[in-house]
């Protein structure tokens, strides 16, 4: 996306869509320059961005992942390699952070390095009001503030990512945008863009910048059963 800074940190509610957005940001980045995806999700056992490592590296994205990602081990540790983007400064580094305050606490590891490059960072909160306990601006702000406290950061903006998987309609996209707009006014930071599943993108008639996302994480059989 034009206008995004070098270091992009994707945070938000557990299950809000951070991983799909991170993968797309990384793939877009790799079309234009040197790109790294740092999977820092150590709380999600199955569906992590690094499980799409083959797709990502095939398109030229360098993937940094938790030590035991994609194994049957549940050991939540991160390699020292997570610090490398701050030294070798790729054109884009996307940090996919675990959900909720508990998943965001890993950012504490990077606090000193982030401080050195704060002007080159975007901290973005992914918002999906169709997730439980996320249906009002108040609840989202309360989660957002908990994440800020745990991660030791301040958000720069929102990504509106309203969806209920295969049942998403264009009206759901607008409903999510309207909540994102309220959040933006309340917190005085912008909505960077609206993420939208690529097949729905052509129906979009709103005012936000849109970010069409190809769904990579859902198993092929998952949305095909209702037959």
């Amino acid at each position: 996306m034009k206008g995004l800074k070098r270091f992009i940190f994707i945070l938000g509610n557990f299950g809000s869509g951070k991983t799909e957005i991170s993968i797309k940001l990384a793939l877009d980045g790799a079309e234009k320059g040197r790109t790294v995806l740092v999977d820092m999700d150590i709380i999600n056992p199955y569906f992590k961005s690094s499980s799409k490592e083959e797709l990502l590296t095939g398109k030229g994205v360098r993937v940094i992942k938790p030590d035991y990602a994609n194994t049957t081990m549940d050991v939540p540790t991160l390699p020292a390699e997570i610090y490398s983007p701050f030294d070798d400064k790729p054109d884009r580094a996307v940090f996919d952070i675990g959900g909720d305050p508990v998943g965001s606490s890993v950012l504490g590891l990077l606090r000193d390095r982030i401080r050195e490059v704060r002007d080159e960072c975007d901290f973005l909160m992914v918002v999906n009001p169709f997730r439980p306990m996320q249906d009002t601006p108040d609840k989202i702000i309360s989660l957002m503030e908990e994440i800020e406290a745990k991660a030791g950061i301040r958000f720069d903006g929102f990504i509106s990512n309203g969806n209920i998987a295969r049942e998403t309609t264009i009206d759901d996209i607008y409903a999510s945008e309207s909540i994102a707009r309220e959040l933006s006014e309340e917190k005085n930071i912008p909505v960077y863009f609206t993420a939208i599943e690529e097949s729905l993108a052509k129906e979009y008639n709103g005012e936000n910048k849109i970010f069409p996302v190809h769904i990579n994480m859902r198993p092929e059989w998952l949305d095909n059963y209702n037959i």
Partner: peptide
């Protein structure tokens, strides 16, 4: 917003 997007584990808790 009657329907929620939920993980199986969350849905079990809420149910």
């Amino acid at each position: 917003m009657a329907k929620k997007l939920m993980k199986g584990s969350e849905a079990i808790g809420e149910a």
